[in-house]
Amino acid sequence: MEVRTIKVFTTVDNINLHTQVVDMSMTYGQQFGPTYLDGADVTKIKPHNSHEGKTFYVLPNDDTLRVEAFEYYHTTDPSFLGRYMSALNHTKKWKYPQVNGLTSIKWADNNCYLATALLTLQQIELKFNPPALQDAYYRARAGEAANFCALILAYCNKTVGELGDVRETMSYLFQHANLDSCKRVLNVVCKTCGQQQTTLKGVEAVMYMGTLSYEQFKKGVQIPCTCGKQATKYLVQQESPFVMMSAPPAQYELKHGTFTCASEYTGNYQCGHYKHITSKETLYCIDGALLTKSSEYKGPITDVFYKENSYTTTIK
Rank of each mutant, 00 (worst) to 15 (best):
E2I: 09
E2P: 10
T5G: 11
T5V: 10
T5R: 13
I6Y: 08
I6L: 14
I6G: 05
I6D: 06
K7T: 14
V8N: 06
T10W: 08
N14F: 08
L17P: 12
Q20T: 12
Q20V: 14
V22E: 05
V22F: 06
D23A: 12
M24W: 07
M24I: 12
S25N: 14
M26F: 08
Y28S: 07
Y28V: 04
Q30V: 12
Q30A: 13
Q31I: 12
F32Q: 09
G33K: 02
P34D: 13
P34F: 10
T35V: 10
Y36I: 03
L37C: 12
L37T: 09
D38E: 12
G39K: 06
A40Y: 14
D41C: 13
V42P: 04
V42N: 07
T43Q: 14
K44E: 15
I45M: 13
H48Q: 12
H48L: 14
H48K: 15
N49V: 13
N49K: 12
N49E: 12
S50A: 13
E52R: 11
G53M: 14
G53V: 07
K54T: 14
K54G: 12
T55W: 07
T55C: 11
T55D: 04
F56H: 04
Y57M: 14
V58E: 06
P60L: 04
D62S: 15
T64Q: 14
L65D: 07
L65E: 09
R66Q: 13
F70H: 09
F70E: 11
E71S: 07
Y72C: 07
Y72S: 09
Y72I: 03
H74L: 15
H74R: 09
T75I: 10
D77S: 10
P78L: 10
P78M: 11
S79C: 14
L81Y: 08
G82K: 12
Y84T: 03
S86V: 11
S86K: 15
A87N: 15
N89R: 15
N89S: 12
N89F: 12
H90E: 10
H90D: 08
T91Y: 03
T91Q: 03
K92V: 09
K92A: 10
W94E: 04
K95V: 15
K95G: 08
Q98G: 06
T103M: 05
S104E: 06
K106P: 05
W107Y: 05
N111S: 01
N111L: 06
C112D: 06
Y113F: 07
Y113M: 02
Y113S: 07
T116F: 05
T116V: 13
T116P: 05
L118F: 10
L118P: 04
L121W: 06
Q122G: 03
Q123A: 07
I124S: 03
I124A: 03
E125C: 07
L126R: 03
L126C: 10
F128H: 02
N129E: 10
N129G: 09
P130G: 02
P130Q: 03
P131S: 03
P131L: 05
A132T: 04
A132F: 05
Q134D: 07
Q134P: 04
D135E: 13
Y137L: 12
Y138W: 15
Y138V: 14
A140D: 04
R141K: 15
R141I: 11
E144C: 10
E144K: 11
A145S: 03
A145H: 02
C149L: 08
L151N: 04
L151I: 02
I152C: 07
L153T: 02
A154H: 03
C156A: 07
C156T: 09
C156S: 09
T159E: 15
V160G: 04
E162I: 02
G164Y: 00
R167D: 03
T169P: 03
T169Q: 04
M170Y: 04
S171K: 14
S171F: 15
Y172A: 11
L173R: 04
L173P: 01
F174P: 02
F174K: 01
A177Y: 01
N178L: 06
N178S: 09
N178M: 06
L179R: 02
V185Q: 05
L186F: 13
V188L: 09
C190Q: 01
C190K: 01
K191L: 09
K191S: 13
C193W: 02
G194W: 04
T198C: 14
T199G: 05
T199H: 11
L200T: 11
L200F: 12
L200W: 03
K201D: 07
K201L: 11
V203M: 11
V203I: 15
E204N: 10
E204A: 11
V206N: 00
G210Q: 01
G210A: 02
G210M: 00
G210P: 04
T211F: 03
T211N: 09
L212C: 09
L212N: 02
E215P: 01
Q216K: 14
Q216N: 10
F217N: 01
K218V: 06
K218E: 04
V221D: 03
V221N: 01
C225P: 00
C225T: 01
T226V: 14
C227K: 01
G228H: 02
K229H: 10
A231G: 03
K233A: 13
K233N: 06
Y234W: 09
L235N: 01
V236H: 04
Q237A: 14
Q237N: 09
Q238V: 02
Q238M: 00
E239P: 01
P241V: 00
F242Y: 00
V243D: 01
P248E: 08
P248Q: 12
P249W: 01
P249E: 00
P249T: 01
Y252N: 05
E253S: 12
E253V: 09
K255N: 08
K255C: 11
K255W: 06
H256S: 10
H256D: 06
F259W: 01
T260S: 07
C261G: 00
E264S: 11
T266M: 12
N268K: 12
N268Y: 11
Y269M: 15
Q270E: 14
Q270R: 09
C271K: 09
Y274W: 05
K275M: 07
H276K: 01
I277Q: 03
T278W: 04
S279I: 01
K280G: 13
K280Y: 08
E281D: 13
T282N: 11
Y284A: 12
I286S: 04
I286M: 03
D287G: 01
D287E: 03
G288Q: 01
G288R: 03
G288H: 04
A289W: 07
L290M: 12
L291Y: 15
T292N: 11
T292K: 09
T292G: 09
K293V: 10
S294F: 13
E296T: 13
E296Y: 14
Y297T: 01
P300A: 13
P300L: 07
I301E: 00
I301N: 00
T302G: 04
T302R: 00
T302H: 00
T302L: 00
V304Y: 01
V304M: 05
V304I: 10
F305D: 07
F305M: 00
K307S: 15
K307E: 09
E308A: 07
N309A: 15
Y311S: 08
Y311L: 10
T312Y: 10
T312D: 08
T314C: 09
I315Q: 15
I315F: 15
I315H: 15
I315G: 12
